[in-house]
Every structure is written in C-alpha cells, then in structure tokens.
C-alpha cells in the first residue's frame, strides 16, 4: 500500500468578451467531492476575485455553484485551487455520497449512442466476469482509437470517433461508455484533474470513464492512459457524457465575441 499523496491544483478558466457583455451567469462545477480515496484538504473557488461556495450537490455527488455578474464585463476569470489528498484505491470509488441509481447510467445520449461497430467492439470484449470484460474493453477501445490531439471536438460522438479511429481522452471514454452500456453495464463520464508524466503537456482537465460492477461499485477506467485511475487522478464531475460534465458553463447577455482559455497546473504539494 503506497502512502497518500498531496496534490496541489490550480485551475484557471478565463473568458474574454469583445465588446463588453451586459451581464454574465456561470454554472460552476469546480468542487471535488471527498470519498475514501480522495480528501479535499483545502479548496477555494473565485470568480473575478469573489469567493464562491457551492449551493447544492447533485444526485451523483457533484457540487455546483452559480455566479452572476452585471454591468459591462470584458473578462471573467474563474480560479479553482487547493490541495487534494489521494490514496491508492485501484480506481474503485468507495464512500462517495450519491443517490442516483446505477441504472440511470444505462441511458444513451447523443454523444454516446451505439452503432454496429461499437456493439461489435463490445461483444468481442465480453468475458464471463464483468470486471474482466471492462478491462478487456478498455484495452480494445484504446487499440481502436489512436490518441491524436485536435482530431475531434466537444461535439464528436463515440461512433464518429471510433469510425475515424482517432481521438482524445474524451472520445476514448465515450466509446468505452457506449460499448459498456450496450452490454448492459452502467457507465458514465468523469471529468477531473490528472498529473501527466514527464514530457506530457496536459494543461486542461482530463476525462475518463467509470463503470458499475455489481458488488464492487463504480470503477474507473482511464482508457487513454491504459490504466485505472491512480493517485494522479482527481475526480471532479461525473455525468452521462462529456457534454453534461463541463466544469464551467456560462451564458452572457449582449452580443459579444467570446474567447475562452483554460489552464490546469497540478503537482505534488510541498510538505
């Protein structure tokens, strides 16, 4: 059993508006929840320097806040930062307070709709044991979809990513989720933070998947990295697909051109 590690995270999202927006409303899901494998030691979210507290927690244990602002706005800067302690858990999410029935995550969405290719991929990966099926599925999805930055976008569906055989972490997760659901295994999308290895330049949030295994609970699969979530993964949001798991969603009033930049800095905290 490895020791817990302390991760220091700073996640900055910046919107610039040209010309100024009349008003802005932002839905923020930037609050990691605690469970057995993850303790939030300290955490603070600000928007244009105003501190923000979550005002409710959804059925899957995800906390959210709403921030609103009036008057001419040329920039909104949302900063989420703090320290999260991660323990080794082999990717099994235990002790998370959630009320959603697992079967909810059998529901298909536009981004995770299945087609014949996905169904074929899924049935080829099927084993007698659910956990083995999922591991085998994770590997074959990764084999079928090459990691290729900027080859897809937020709206690319699982079927499209599989067909072109290339994508990013979000697409790997979507194909896996679609395939698992087609086998009757509840699966969902997780957005979070990830400590990339040497040379990797992961400066945005990361995406992986969780599948429900009877008797064990929700188990994570980081398909892109061919692993189950480790102490380098920090869980932030989970939902039916990536489209519903955006950490920051905003709307403005007025006719302004919007520019979005985001950055994530994550590493082991100094003792």
């Amino acid at each position: 059993m490895t020791d817990p590690i302390r991760l220091s995270i700073r996640h900055v999202t910046r919107y610039a508006y040209e010309p100024q927006a009349v008003a802005a409303v932002m839905r923020l899901r930037l609050f990691p929840s605690g469970y057995e494998g993850q303790t939030v030691e300290s955490w603070q979210v600000t928007a244009n320097d105003q501190p923000i507290e979550p005002n409710f927690t959804d059925a899957a244990g995800v906390k959210e806040a709403l921030w609103s602002c009036d008057g001419g706005i040329s920039e909104v800067e949302v900063i989420a930062e703090g320290i999260v302690v991660r323990r080794q858990d082999q990717g099994v999410v235990r002790g998370l307070k959630e009320r959603a029935p697992a079967e909810l995550f059998l529901r298909t969405t536009d981004l995770t709709a299945t087609d014949t290719a996905i169904k074929d991929l899924a049935s080829a990966a099927r084993r007698s044991d659910t956990l083995e099926t999922l591991h085998s599925l994770s590997a074959s999805v990764r084999d079928a979809v090459e990691y290729k930055p900027a080859s897809t976008n937020m709206a690319t569906s699982a079927a499209a990513a599989l067909e072109q055989g290339a994508g990013v972490c979000q697409d790997h997760a979507h194909v896996f989720i679609a395939a698992a659901r087609s086998l009757g295994i509840p699966a969902r999308y997780v957005a979070g933070y990830y400590v990339a290895g040497e040379g990797d330049d992961l400066t945005e949030t990361h995406g992986w998947a969780e599948a429900f295994v009877e008797g064990l609970g929700w188990v994570g699969f980081d398909i892109a990295n061919r692993t189950c979530p480790t102490q380098d993964h920090v869980r932030l949001i989970c939902h039916l697909d990536a489209g519903r798991a955006a950490p920051v969603i905003g709307a403005i009033e007025g006719y302004a051109e919007e520019t979005l930049t985001a950055s994530v800095a994550i590493g082991q905290a100094q003792q």
């Binding site: 959804d58 059925a59 529901r107």
Partner: peptide, 27 residues
Amino acid sequence: RREILRAGRIPAELVIQNLAFVPEMIG
C-alpha cells in the same frame, strides 16, 4: 427512494430509462 420500483410493482427501466425522467431532480 424508488420504493415502487424496488417492490417490483413497476419495471425500473420503464422509469429510470425514460427520457422524461430528469436525473437533476433525484433527491
């Protein structure tokens, strides 16, 4: 609590998989 589904009086998937069932409302 979904008692009526647990009691097997209505098939769970008919409710949970129904697109009119809004996950945000749970709890």
